[in-house]
Amino acid sequence: MQKWEYATVPLLVHVTKAILDQWGQDGWELVQVVPSPTNPDNLVAYMKRPIA
């Protein structure tokens, strides 16, 4: 059975692509982007990658 690890990543609007590109280079897959629970003006990315 595949096992996964997860991460939550704060996204800065002016560098969102760079942040996601870097995490993607490290093997992370974007699952969802949602407003931050503490400040809806900020975004949070939920990421996952398989555990080897």
Rank of each mutant, 00 (worst) to 15 (best):
E5K: 11
H14W: 13
G27D: 09
V34S: 12
L11M: 10
W23D: 11
Y46A: 07
W28F: 11
W23V: 13
L30C: 01
N39M: 11
D21R: 03
W23F: 15
Q2P: 02
W23R: 09
D21T: 06
A18I: 08
P10K: 08
W4K: 06
Y6C: 11
A52K: 11
V9P: 00
V31Q: 02
D26G: 07
T8A: 13
N39C: 15
W4M: 01
V15N: 12
T16Q: 15
V34E: 06
V33P: 07
S36N: 04
E29M: 10
S36T: 04
I19E: 09
T38E: 10
V44G: 08
Q25P: 01
P37L: 03
D21K: 04
T8W: 06
V13W: 00
L12T: 05
S36R: 06
G24F: 02
T8C: 05
L20G: 02
I19C: 09
E5T: 14
K17G: 06
V44C: 00
P40Q: 02
N39E: 14
T16K: 15
A18R: 15
G24H: 04
H14S: 15
I19P: 08
W4H: 00
D41T: 12
M1F: 00
Y46N: 14
Q22Y: 10
V9D: 13
Q25L: 05
P50D: 11
V13Q: 00
Y6P: 11
V15A: 00
L12D: 05
G27Y: 02
D21A: 03
K17A: 07
I19Y: 04
W28C: 08
G24R: 02
K3V: 00
